[in-house]
Protein backbone atom coordinates (compact mmCIF):
# COMPACT_ATOMS: atom_id res chain seq x y z
CA UNK A 1 0.00 0.00 0.00
CA UNK A 2 2.78 2.42 0.99
CA UNK A 3 4.64 1.56 -2.19
CA UNK A 4 1.50 2.33 -4.13
CA UNK A 5 1.08 5.72 -2.44
CA UNK A 6 4.72 6.53 -3.06
CA UNK A 7 4.30 5.64 -6.72
CA UNK A 8 1.25 7.82 -7.03
CA UNK A 9 3.03 10.69 -5.31
CA UNK A 10 5.93 10.40 -7.74
CA UNK A 11 3.53 10.49 -10.69
CA UNK A 12 1.82 13.48 -9.13
CA UNK A 13 5.08 15.42 -8.88
CA UNK A 14 5.80 14.58 -12.51
CA UNK A 15 2.34 15.82 -13.50
CA UNK A 16 2.83 19.00 -11.52
CA UNK A 17 6.08 19.63 -13.33
CA UNK A 18 4.31 19.17 -16.66
CA UNK A 19 1.54 21.47 -15.49
CA UNK A 20 4.05 24.17 -14.57
CA UNK A 21 5.64 23.92 -18.01
CA UNK A 22 2.19 24.17 -19.56
CA UNK A 23 1.26 27.23 -17.49
CA UNK A 24 4.55 28.88 -18.35
CA UNK A 25 4.26 28.23 -22.10
CA UNK A 26 0.66 29.42 -22.07
CA UNK A 27 1.72 32.88 -20.96
CA UNK A 28 4.88 32.99 -23.07
CA UNK A 29 2.98 32.05 -26.20
CA UNK A 30 0.14 34.47 -25.50
CA UNK A 31 -0.39 37.01 -28.24
CA UNK A 32 0.72 40.56 -27.48
CA UNK A 33 3.93 41.72 -25.89
CA UNK A 34 3.95 41.53 -22.11
CA UNK A 35 6.63 44.20 -21.77
CA UNK A 36 4.55 46.69 -23.76
CA UNK A 37 1.52 45.93 -21.62
CA UNK A 38 3.42 46.61 -18.41
CA UNK A 39 5.20 49.64 -19.71
CA UNK A 40 1.87 51.10 -20.80
CA UNK A 41 0.47 50.30 -17.39
CA UNK A 42 3.15 52.49 -15.83
CA UNK A 43 3.07 55.36 -18.30
CA UNK A 44 0.28 55.39 -20.89
CA UNK A 45 2.71 56.92 -23.37
CA UNK A 46 5.53 54.43 -23.04
CA UNK A 47 8.57 54.84 -25.24
CA UNK A 48 10.87 52.16 -26.66
CA UNK A 49 13.29 52.80 -23.80
CA UNK A 50 10.56 52.31 -21.22
CA UNK A 51 9.72 48.94 -22.77
CA UNK A 52 13.35 47.87 -22.85
CA UNK A 53 13.66 48.83 -19.20
CA UNK A 54 10.71 46.62 -18.30
CA UNK A 55 12.19 43.74 -20.29
CA UNK A 56 15.45 44.11 -18.43
CA UNK A 57 13.69 44.34 -15.08
CA UNK A 58 11.59 41.20 -15.53
CA UNK A 59 14.26 39.24 -17.33
CA UNK A 60 12.07 39.01 -20.43
CA UNK A 61 15.07 39.37 -22.75
CA UNK A 62 16.72 36.22 -21.34
CA UNK A 63 16.46 32.78 -23.05
CA UNK A 64 13.20 30.84 -22.40
CA UNK A 65 14.76 28.05 -20.36
CA UNK A 66 16.40 30.50 -18.03
CA UNK A 67 13.16 32.42 -17.70
CA UNK A 68 11.32 29.21 -16.84
CA UNK A 69 13.88 28.29 -14.20
CA UNK A 70 13.66 31.76 -12.72
CA UNK A 71 9.87 31.64 -12.71
CA UNK A 72 9.69 28.15 -11.20
CA UNK A 73 12.10 29.10 -8.43
CA UNK A 74 9.92 32.04 -7.57
CA UNK A 75 6.71 30.02 -7.78
CA UNK A 76 8.04 27.41 -5.35
CA UNK A 77 8.72 30.19 -2.86
CA UNK A 78 5.24 31.55 -3.38
CA UNK A 79 6.45 34.42 -5.50
CA UNK A 80 4.15 34.39 -8.51
CA UNK A 81 4.97 37.75 -9.99
CA UNK A 82 3.12 41.00 -10.23
CA UNK A 83 -0.24 41.64 -11.83
CA UNK A 84 0.08 43.40 -15.18
CA UNK A 85 -3.10 45.30 -14.52
CA UNK A 86 -3.14 46.27 -10.87
CA UNK A 87 0.51 45.97 -9.96
CA UNK A 88 -0.57 43.82 -7.01
CA UNK A 89 1.61 40.93 -5.79
CA UNK A 90 -0.16 37.86 -7.20
CA UNK A 91 1.14 35.43 -4.57
CA UNK A 92 -0.15 37.61 -1.76
CA UNK A 93 -3.52 38.03 -3.46
CA UNK A 94 -3.82 34.24 -3.84
CA UNK A 95 -2.98 33.60 -0.20
CA UNK A 96 -5.49 36.12 1.08
CA UNK A 97 -8.28 34.65 -1.04
CA UNK A 98 -7.54 30.95 -0.62
CA UNK A 99 -9.54 30.44 2.57
CA UNK A 100 -12.74 31.86 1.08
CA UNK A 101 -12.67 29.47 -1.87
CA UNK A 102 -11.58 26.55 0.30
CA UNK A 103 -14.53 27.07 2.64
CA UNK A 104 -16.87 27.48 -0.29
CA UNK A 105 -15.75 24.28 -2.01
CA UNK A 106 -15.65 22.28 1.23
CA UNK A 107 -19.21 23.32 2.05
CA UNK A 108 -20.36 22.64 -1.50
CA UNK A 109 -18.75 19.20 -1.37
CA UNK A 110 -20.60 18.36 1.85
CA UNK A 111 -23.88 19.54 0.31
CA UNK A 112 -23.23 17.46 -2.81
CA UNK A 113 -22.22 14.39 -0.77
CA UNK A 114 -25.19 14.44 1.61
CA UNK A 115 -27.84 15.38 -0.97
CA UNK A 116 -26.62 12.89 -3.56
CA UNK A 117 -26.62 9.98 -1.13
CA UNK A 118 -30.03 10.96 0.21
CA UNK A 119 -31.62 11.25 -3.22
CA UNK A 120 -29.80 8.18 -4.56
CA UNK A 121 -30.76 5.99 -1.58
CA UNK A 122 -34.42 7.03 -1.71
CA UNK A 123 -34.46 6.19 -5.41
CA UNK A 124 -32.82 2.81 -4.84
CA UNK A 125 -35.01 1.86 -1.86
CA UNK A 126 -38.20 2.59 -3.75
CA UNK A 127 -36.81 1.59 -7.13
CA UNK A 128 -39.28 1.97 -10.00
CA UNK A 129 -41.95 3.36 -7.71
CA UNK A 130 -43.24 6.85 -7.06
CA UNK A 131 -40.46 8.11 -4.74
CA UNK A 132 -37.87 6.92 -7.26
CA UNK A 133 -39.57 8.75 -10.10
CA UNK A 134 -39.80 11.94 -8.03
CA UNK A 135 -36.12 11.74 -7.03
CA UNK A 136 -35.09 11.05 -10.61
CA UNK A 137 -37.13 14.03 -11.76
CA UNK A 138 -35.40 16.24 -9.21
CA UNK A 139 -32.00 14.88 -10.20
CA UNK A 140 -32.71 15.42 -13.87
CA UNK A 141 -33.77 19.02 -13.24
CA UNK A 142 -30.82 19.61 -10.94
CA UNK A 143 -28.32 18.28 -13.44
CA UNK A 144 -29.81 20.52 -16.13
CA UNK A 145 -29.97 23.78 -14.18
CA UNK A 146 -26.94 26.07 -14.47
CA UNK A 147 -25.53 27.05 -11.09
CA UNK A 148 -25.94 30.77 -11.79
CA UNK A 149 -29.68 30.20 -12.23
CA UNK A 150 -29.85 28.09 -9.05
CA UNK A 151 -28.05 30.92 -7.24
CA UNK A 152 -30.39 33.58 -8.63
CA UNK A 153 -33.45 31.54 -7.65
CA UNK A 154 -32.11 30.90 -4.15
CA UNK A 155 -31.30 34.57 -3.66
CA UNK A 156 -34.74 35.57 -4.84
CA UNK A 157 -36.57 32.99 -2.74
CA UNK A 158 -34.64 33.21 0.52
CA UNK A 159 -33.43 36.76 0.61
CA UNK A 160 -35.60 38.97 -1.53
CA UNK A 161 -38.90 37.21 -0.97
CA UNK A 162 -38.69 35.62 2.48
CA UNK A 163 -35.90 37.73 3.99
CA UNK A 164 -34.45 34.62 5.60
CA UNK A 165 -30.81 34.67 4.63
CA UNK A 166 -28.30 37.34 3.69
CA UNK A 167 -27.60 37.68 -0.02
CA UNK A 168 -24.27 39.38 -0.42
CA UNK A 169 -20.96 39.47 1.42
CA UNK A 170 -20.27 38.04 4.85
CA UNK A 171 -22.42 38.50 7.89
CA UNK A 172 -22.07 35.45 10.05
CA UNK A 173 -22.41 31.76 9.21
CA UNK A 174 -25.85 32.23 7.63
CA UNK A 175 -24.26 33.98 4.69
CA UNK A 176 -22.49 30.74 3.78
CA UNK A 177 -25.69 28.77 3.28
CA UNK A 178 -26.81 30.10 -0.11
CA UNK A 179 -23.38 29.92 -1.78
CA UNK A 180 -22.89 26.36 -0.51
CA UNK A 181 -26.27 25.28 -1.83
CA UNK A 182 -25.66 27.04 -5.13
CA UNK A 183 -22.32 25.38 -5.60
CA UNK A 184 -23.36 21.92 -4.39
CA UNK A 185 -26.70 21.61 -6.13
CA UNK A 186 -25.65 20.56 -9.63
CA UNK A 187 -22.92 18.18 -8.44
CA UNK A 188 -25.43 16.67 -6.01
CA UNK A 189 -27.82 15.96 -8.86
CA UNK A 190 -25.10 14.47 -11.05
CA UNK A 191 -23.80 12.32 -8.19
CA UNK A 192 -27.27 11.14 -7.17
CA UNK A 193 -27.63 9.76 -10.68
CA UNK A 194 -24.29 8.00 -10.28
CA UNK A 195 -25.65 6.41 -7.09
CA UNK A 196 -28.97 5.48 -8.64
CA UNK A 197 -27.52 4.03 -11.85
CA UNK A 198 -24.83 2.28 -9.80
CA UNK A 199 -27.46 0.57 -7.66
CA UNK A 200 -29.52 -0.33 -10.73
CA UNK A 201 -26.42 -1.85 -12.29
CA UNK A 202 -25.36 -3.72 -9.16
CA UNK A 203 -28.83 -5.04 -8.38
CA UNK A 204 -28.93 -6.80 -11.76
CA UNK A 205 -25.69 -8.71 -11.01
CA UNK A 206 -25.68 -12.46 -10.31
CA UNK A 207 -24.33 -11.98 -6.79
CA UNK A 208 -27.56 -10.19 -5.89
CA UNK A 209 -29.48 -13.28 -6.95
CA UNK A 210 -27.21 -15.26 -4.62
CA UNK A 211 -27.92 -12.79 -1.83
CA UNK A 212 -31.65 -13.16 -2.42
CA UNK A 213 -31.28 -16.94 -2.35
CA UNK A 214 -29.87 -16.53 1.15
CA UNK A 215 -33.20 -15.04 2.24
CA UNK A 216 -31.81 -11.55 2.83
CA UNK A 217 -34.17 -8.59 2.62
CA UNK A 218 -34.00 -6.22 -0.33
CA UNK A 219 -32.87 -3.32 1.88
CA UNK A 220 -30.08 -5.34 3.39
CA UNK A 221 -28.91 -6.49 -0.03
CA UNK A 222 -28.92 -2.88 -1.18
CA UNK A 223 -26.64 -1.70 1.60
CA UNK A 224 -24.53 -4.76 2.32
CA UNK A 225 -24.10 -6.23 -1.14
CA UNK A 226 -24.63 -3.48 -3.70
CA UNK A 227 -23.18 -0.51 -1.80
CA UNK A 228 -19.59 -1.81 -1.45
CA UNK A 229 -19.61 -2.47 -5.17
CA UNK A 230 -20.61 1.04 -6.18
CA UNK A 231 -18.35 2.81 -3.67
CA UNK A 232 -15.30 3.04 -5.99
CA UNK A 233 -17.37 4.44 -8.86
CA UNK A 234 -18.97 6.96 -6.53
CA UNK A 235 -15.65 8.11 -5.09
CA UNK A 236 -14.29 8.63 -8.56
CA UNK A 237 -17.31 10.71 -9.57
CA UNK A 238 -17.15 12.66 -6.30
CA UNK A 239 -13.53 13.55 -7.06
CA UNK A 240 -14.46 14.79 -10.52
CA UNK A 241 -17.31 16.86 -9.10
CA UNK A 242 -15.14 18.44 -6.40
CA UNK A 243 -12.75 19.41 -9.17
CA UNK A 244 -15.61 20.96 -11.08
CA UNK A 245 -16.76 22.81 -7.97
CA UNK A 246 -13.41 24.59 -7.69
CA UNK A 247 -14.09 26.06 -11.10
CA UNK A 248 -17.71 26.58 -10.12
CA UNK A 249 -16.39 29.10 -7.63
CA UNK A 250 -15.75 31.32 -10.66
CA UNK A 251 -19.52 31.53 -11.10
CA UNK A 252 -20.66 31.50 -7.49
CA UNK A 253 -18.23 34.02 -5.98
CA UNK A 254 -19.17 36.95 -8.26
CA UNK A 255 -22.84 36.08 -7.78
CA UNK A 256 -22.56 36.62 -4.02
CA UNK A 257 -19.94 39.35 -4.29
CA UNK A 258 -17.26 37.25 -2.63
CA UNK A 259 -13.54 37.85 -3.02
CA UNK A 260 -12.14 34.38 -3.56
CA UNK A 261 -9.87 32.66 -6.03
CA UNK A 262 -12.69 32.28 -8.51
CA UNK A 263 -13.33 36.00 -8.46
CA UNK A 264 -9.61 36.68 -8.91
CA UNK A 265 -9.34 34.19 -11.77
CA UNK A 266 -12.38 35.64 -13.51
CA UNK A 267 -10.95 39.16 -13.29
CA UNK A 268 -7.66 37.84 -14.66
CA UNK A 269 -9.39 36.15 -17.59
CA UNK A 270 -11.56 39.19 -18.32
CA UNK A 271 -8.66 41.66 -18.39
CA UNK A 272 -6.15 39.18 -19.81
CA UNK A 273 -3.97 39.62 -16.75
CA UNK A 274 -1.61 36.76 -17.66
CA UNK A 275 0.25 36.60 -14.37
CA UNK A 276 -3.00 36.15 -12.47
CA UNK A 277 -4.37 33.59 -14.94
CA UNK A 278 -1.10 31.69 -14.80
CA UNK A 279 -0.96 31.70 -11.01
CA UNK A 280 -4.59 30.64 -10.63
CA UNK A 281 -4.16 27.85 -13.18
CA UNK A 282 -1.13 26.63 -11.28
CA UNK A 283 -3.07 26.56 -8.00
CA UNK A 284 -6.09 24.85 -9.58
CA UNK A 285 -4.03 22.22 -11.37
CA UNK A 286 -2.02 21.51 -8.22
CA UNK A 287 -5.32 20.96 -6.44
CA UNK A 288 -6.59 18.62 -9.19
CA UNK A 289 -3.43 16.56 -9.11
CA UNK A 290 -3.57 16.17 -5.32
CA UNK A 291 -7.29 15.45 -5.50
CA UNK A 292 -6.63 12.76 -8.08
CA UNK A 293 -4.06 11.07 -5.87
CA UNK A 294 -6.43 11.15 -2.88
CA UNK A 295 -9.30 9.74 -4.95
CA UNK A 296 -7.04 7.04 -6.37
CA UNK A 297 -6.01 5.98 -2.89
CA UNK A 298 -9.66 6.04 -1.81
CA UNK A 299 -10.69 3.84 -4.71
CA UNK A 300 -7.89 1.40 -4.00
CA UNK A 301 -9.01 1.18 -0.39
CA UNK A 302 -12.65 0.50 -1.29
CA UNK A 303 -12.05 -1.99 -4.09
CA UNK A 304 -10.56 -5.22 -2.73
CA UNK A 305 -9.50 -6.34 -6.20
CA UNK A 306 -7.31 -3.27 -6.60
CA UNK A 307 -6.18 -3.29 -2.97
CA UNK A 308 -4.50 -6.69 -3.12
CA UNK A 309 -3.07 -6.06 -6.54
CA UNK A 310 -1.44 -2.81 -5.50
CA UNK A 311 -0.21 -3.58 -2.02
Amino acid sequence: MLVFIAKRARNAVLLLFLASVLCFTLVVSAPGNVAILIAELRTPTATKEDIAKVEEELGLNKPLLERYGFWLQGALKGNLGISYKTGEDVGAALRSRLSVTATLVAGGAVVAFVLSLLVGFIGALWAHRMPDYIMRGIALLGASTPSFFVGALLVYAFSVNWHLLPTFGFSGPASWVLPWLTLGFLPAAVLSRVVRVGFEDAMAKPYVLTARSKGLSQTRILFRDALPNIAPTYLNALGTQIGTMVVGAVVVEPLFAWQGLGDLFLAGVRFRDFMVVQACLLVFITFFVILNVVVDIGITLTDPRLRRQRS
Binding site: P206, R212, S213
Partner: peptide, 23 residues
Protein backbone atom coordinates in the same frame (compact mmCIF):
# COMPACT_ATOMS: atom_id res chain seq x y z
CA UNK B 1 -37.90 -15.16 1.60
CA UNK B 2 -38.36 -16.87 4.95
CA UNK B 3 -37.83 -20.22 3.20
CA UNK B 4 -34.86 -19.19 1.07
CA UNK B 5 -31.55 -19.82 2.71
CA UNK B 6 -33.18 -21.21 5.85
CA UNK B 7 -35.09 -24.27 4.57
CA UNK B 8 -33.92 -24.31 0.99
CA UNK B 9 -30.32 -23.70 -0.03
CA UNK B 10 -29.18 -22.77 -3.51
CA UNK B 11 -25.99 -23.36 -5.47
CA UNK B 12 -25.48 -21.50 -8.71
CA UNK B 13 -23.84 -22.55 -11.91
CA UNK B 14 -21.10 -19.96 -12.14
CA UNK B 15 -19.15 -19.47 -8.91
CA UNK B 16 -17.17 -16.71 -10.63
CA UNK B 17 -20.10 -14.32 -10.68
CA UNK B 18 -22.31 -15.71 -7.91
CA UNK B 19 -20.13 -14.45 -5.06
CA UNK B 20 -19.96 -10.78 -4.17
CA UNK B 21 -16.55 -9.49 -5.32
CA UNK B 22 -16.42 -6.67 -2.78
CA UNK B 23 -17.07 -8.65 0.41
Amino acid sequence: RSLRGKSIGFIFQDPMSALNPAR
